[in-house]
Every structure is written in C-alpha cells, then in structure tokens.
Amino acid sequence: MRDETLEPLPKNWEMAYTDTGMIYFIDHNTKTTTWLDPRLCKK
C-alpha cells in the first residue's frame, strides 16, 4: 500500500517493483538496494 502523505524520496533514490510486485528502493549514490523506505529511516 502506498502512503501518498510521505515526502518525495531523497535525491538519487528510486522506488521500483520486483517481478512479483514488491516495492524496493534503489540508492543510486551507493549503488545498493533496500526493502526499507529511506523516508521512514531518518534519524
């Protein structure tokens, strides 16, 4: 489920979907991926 109230992704981040429809996030700065939304992981 998407939460439209979240702010935009940080610079150089992208949201993508797996072949089965699961959301993951791509950090183009470090060339890594994560299941965790970077907008929710702020310190």
Rank of each mutant, 00 (worst) to 15 (best):
E7V: 10
L36K: 14
W13D: 01
K31S: 12
Y24R: 02
R39N: 03
T20H: 05
P10T: 03
P38V: 00
Y17G: 07
E7M: 09
L9Q: 03
L6H: 06
M15Q: 14
R2C: 12
W35A: 06
E4S: 12
T20E: 14
K42N: 08
Y24Q: 02
E4V: 09
T5G: 12
T18D: 14
E14P: 00
D3E: 13
M22K: 15
K43R: 15
Y17Q: 13
L9A: 01
W13G: 01
M22W: 04
Y24I: 01
K43P: 15
D27C: 04
K43I: 09
F25K: 01
W13Y: 05
L9C: 01
M22E: 15
M22I: 06
N29M: 09
K42L: 11
H28D: 03
E14Q: 11
D3H: 15
P38L: 00
G21R: 07
K43L: 14
D37R: 06
D27W: 00
E4Y: 05
K11S: 11
N29Q: 10
T32I: 10
F25E: 03
W13R: 02
N29L: 09
L6T: 14
E7I: 07
A16E: 06
N29R: 11
Y17M: 09
T34Q: 06
E4F: 10
K11I: 06
P8T: 08
M1V: 10
T20V: 08
L40T: 11
M1Q: 06
D3Q: 11
M1G: 12
D37H: 08
P10D: 03
T32E: 05
E14H: 04
K43Q: 15
W35Y: 15
D27M: 01
E4D: 09
E4R: 10
K31H: 15
T18S: 09
N12L: 06
K42A: 14
R2L: 11
K31G: 10
K11C: 09
D3L: 08
W13F: 07
L40N: 15
T32P: 00
M22G: 14
W35T: 10
H28R: 08
K43G: 15
D3T: 09
K43V: 12
N29H: 06
I23A: 15
P8A: 12
D27T: 00
L6F: 09
D19W: 04
L36S: 12
F25V: 00
H28P: 05
D27R: 00
E14G: 07
T30M: 07
P10L: 02
P38M: 01
N29G: 11
W35K: 05
N12K: 08
T5M: 15
T32Q: 09
D19L: 07
T30P: 00
N12V: 00
D3Y: 05
N29W: 07
Y17I: 06
I26S: 02
Y17A: 15
T5A: 13
Y24S: 01
Y24M: 03
N12H: 08
H28I: 05
A16D: 06
R39I: 05
L9K: 01
N12D: 11
F25S: 02
T5C: 09
G21E: 07
G21D: 06
L6P: 11
I23L: 14
T30D: 06
F25M: 01
W13E: 01
E7F: 05
P10G: 04
K31P: 01
T30R: 08
E4T: 12
M22P: 02
L6Y: 08
E14A: 09
D37W: 02
K42F: 06
E4K: 10
M22D: 15
W13I: 04
G21V: 00
N12C: 06
F25D: 03
K43A: 14
N12P: 04
P10V: 01
D19Q: 12
K43D: 15
Y17N: 07
D19N: 10
M15K: 13
E7D: 10
G21T: 01
T30Q: 09
N12E: 07
E14S: 09
L9T: 03
K11N: 09
T32C: 10
D3R: 09
T33A: 05
K43H: 13
I23R: 15
M1L: 11
T33E: 04
F25G: 03
N12Q: 07
N29I: 07
P8K: 11
M15L: 12
I26R: 05
P10S: 03
E7R: 11
K31T: 07
L6A: 14
K11D: 10
P8L: 08
R39E: 06
W35E: 05
Y24F: 09
L40M: 11
M15D: 04
P8D: 11
L36E: 10
L40P: 09
D27A: 01
P38F: 00
R2F: 08
G21P: 01
P8I: 08
I26W: 02
E7S: 12
M22C: 13
P8E: 11
F25L: 01
T33S: 08
L36R: 14
H28S: 06
H28E: 03
T18W: 02
T18P: 00
T32V: 11
T34S: 10
D27Y: 09
C41M: 13
A16P: 00
K11M: 08
F25C: 01
A16Y: 02
T32D: 03
T30L: 07
E14V: 05
P38Q: 00
W35M: 08
L40Q: 14
A16M: 05
L36P: 01
R39S: 06
T33F: 02
L36Y: 11
T20W: 05
T32N: 07
E14K: 06
P8C: 05
D27N: 07
D3C: 08
W35P: 05
D19S: 13
R2V: 10
L6K: 09
K31Q: 14
C41H: 15
M1K: 15
